[in-house]
């Protein structure tokens, strides 16, 4: 017993040291990459130089801290040679890991089906148009990705995190320009056929329209050509809404309470025309309406027959 206690104490201390160590180590990089300005000792002049940090090399340490890879130190993914400054020019040629390098064939991550995701991604418009130039990191910020659908409580947060992954590039000509020579089109303009478009973009994900549900993936990754995107309102706004298999699928599985509403899973957060109906009210209204019609019909027939008699 004492032994187990000792070992676990030892492990906890080790783990704390490890995390602390990572934080310390990351601090070494973040003192420059986490700031708007960075400073270094200029060995040639003997002075301290202060420079602006390239905003594209700026890393948001708060986001990093809540990301899926929060336990990592920078040098787990980057070469340790980065510890010296100025960084060696060759370092920029370093080959980056792909998600599949670490996650592929690992049972711990089987539920995500990384292989299936990669397969779907290879069939997406982005990969087809650009090959390797477009990779997983383009959407999954290596220094800030957090799980949205699996990780967030509220649908609005799921939607906002997921959509930001697309909008970061589709509304940023510098990021977009890394891949395309064209300017990104204004998303609000290309979607102006949606009534109250801002409200839609807060309540539904880009990928809910731009991919098709894939049964083996929680988040389908095959972005379709724009011609195949979902434009038919009723696919969402109806009793058998496609959203029940995508955006709300997680909730549908979690809660199947009998509240008398069709698609009750949505109701905690909002109301979707056509997709939410109260069954009790439905029956009551049909019955009332039927009774009214029958009553009036009888009255009418009596009116006719009795009048005719006279």
């Amino acid at each position: 017993m004492a032994k187990i206690y000792k070992t676990s104490c030892f492990l906890i201390v080790l783990l704390t040291l490890c995390i602390y160590g990572n934080a310390q180590q990351n601090q070494q990089c973040l003192k420059c990459h986490g700031q708007v300005f960075y400073q270094y000792d200029n060995e040639w002049t003997g002075k301290v130089d202060k420079r602006p940090m390239n905003p594209f090399y700026h890393i948001d340490s708060v986001k990093m801290h809540i990301s899926v890879h929060k336990e990592f130190s920078c040098t787990d993914c980057h070469r340790p040679d980065y510890e010296t400054f100025p960084h060696s020019g060759e370092l920029r040629m370093e080959e980056k890991y792909a998600c599949i390098d670490c996650h592929g064939g690992d049972d711990n991550f089987a539920k995500y089906n990384f292989e299936g995701i990669e397969q779907a991604f290879m069939e997406s418009v982005h990969f087809k148009a650009n090959d390797d130039k477009f990779n997983c990191w383009m959407c999954h910020d290596p220094h800030g990705y957090q799980l949205a659908l699996r990780g967030q409580e509220s649908i609005k947060d799921v939607v906002s995190l997921s959509n930001q992954m697309c909008l970061d590039c589709h509304t940023n000509k510098f990021k977009f320009g890394l891949i395309s020579d064209e300017m990104p089109k204004d998303i609000a303009e290309t979607h102006n056929w949606l009534p109250n478009q801002p409200n839609h973009f807060e309540n539904v994900r880009c990928i809910d329209c731009h991919t098709q549900v894939q049964s083996d993936l929680l988040v389908s990754h095959k972005i379709l050509p724009k011609e195949e995107a979902l434009k038919n309102c009723v696919k969402c706004h109806s009793a058998n809404s496609v959203l029940m298999e995508s955006l709300y699928s997680h909730r549908v599985k979690e809660s199947r309470e009998e509240s008398g509403f069709i698609n009750a899973a949505i109701l905690n957060e909002g109301y979707m025309i056509g997709a939410n109906r109260n069954l009790a009210l439905n029956y009551v209204s049909v019955i009332l309406f039927g009774m009214l019609l029958i009553g009036l019909l009888i009255h009418f027939i009596l009116r006719l027959t009795i009048k005719n008699k006279k």
Partner: peptide, 21 residues
């Protein structure tokens, strides 16, 4: 709109929304 259904369309949904408004 209340009973919208992909297989049974009384008024196309977007037209229904616009004219209802």
């Amino acid at each position: 709109m209340q009973y919208s259904n992909p297989n049974w369309i009384l008024v196309p949904f977007d037209l229904a929304v616009a004219s209802h408004n």
